[in-house]
Design a protein around this nucleic acid. Structure first.
Lengths: 149, 149
DNA sequence: CTGTTTTTAATGCAATTGCATCGACATTGA
DNA sequence: TCAATGTCGATGCAATTGCATTAAAAACAG
């Protein structure tokens, strides 16, 4: 008979289950709000926001991947779709022909802004309403430990 | 110019960003372990575990959906695949021909068990190593607030 | 009852994601 | 300097997911 793994504690297992469930619940609710307002998904928003924050509204695909944890091939195709919609533009990367810079367009910035009005409100409804700022700080600190290393 | 939404606080936004990132990070790591051990994805595991816990290893699809927060059509097809692999079996629901019962097979139970040896170890590596039980308890309590209502 | 509404699960088809690999270029090391 | 190795982004194809709808049966309302 096979040896059981060193069992994670009940507290750890419960926290893990809740992490999954909380993420699915909140993402689901927020995505539903965005969709019903006629907006694209959170993934699009994430990319737009990262770009907007980047220097001159530009980042390389690798930088975007790293920021939002998308797979390389998924991002490549997401950028195709976003480019087709005129939200971003791919421009050459000076001094390295393998790379490229993805640049947010004015239209992209405008969309990010309009989405934020819905997204921010959804965050209020589904998160701010449930946690105080103090609790949010505690949550951040705990989650940071999971992300690190 | 459009009115900004009642801005979520910086603390709330940070917590939300970390929730997404922590979930993606940990799920990504655990999925990678499962895959490299030749196992199917966490979704399969989730279904197997819920069924194993259910009365006589049986639940209706609706009950599974509710437990794991899958979409109805996704679960329907996931069950197709699992049934084809002999992990579950669909049986009639007594007294209601619309419904059905999904029953875990011995093979399904065995797979759940074998997966747990890898999954539990991964939880140890990626969660237990980062959080004490006390911290896990705090995290659970905070996440619960997000799930509720 | 009987027609209407609701619940449950499945499915055709489009969109997205995952996997493996490729082609182009850059970097490294002998 | 040039062959080997590594990095970056794209892409063909398979698998999965999302969307809209359907069929079947149950629950409900008059």
């Amino acid at each position: 008979m096979q040896e059981a793994p060193e069992e994670p504690s009940a507290a750890i297992i419960r926290a893990w289950g809740r992490l999954i469930r909380a993420e699915r619940t909140v993402v689901g609710r927020i995505e539903a709000e965005l969709k019903s307002a006629g907006f694209p998904s959170l993934h699009w928003y994430d990319v737009l926001l990262e770009l907007k924050r980047g220097p001159e509204g530009r980042l390389t695909p690798r930088e975007i991947e790293e920021a939002v944890l998308f797979e390389q091939y998924n991002l490549s195709r997401l950028l195709d779709r976003m480019e087709k919609e005129g939200l971003v533009r791919r421009v050459p990367y000076p001094g390295d022909k393998r790379r490229q810079l993805v640049e947010i367009t004015e239209e992209g910035k405008a969309l990010q802004w309009r989405m934020w009005s819905v997204y921010g409100a959804a965050i209020n409804r589904f998160i701010s309403a449930k946690l105080t700022d103090k609790e949010a700080g505690q949550l951040s600190a705990l989650l940071l430990k999971l992300i690190q290393e």
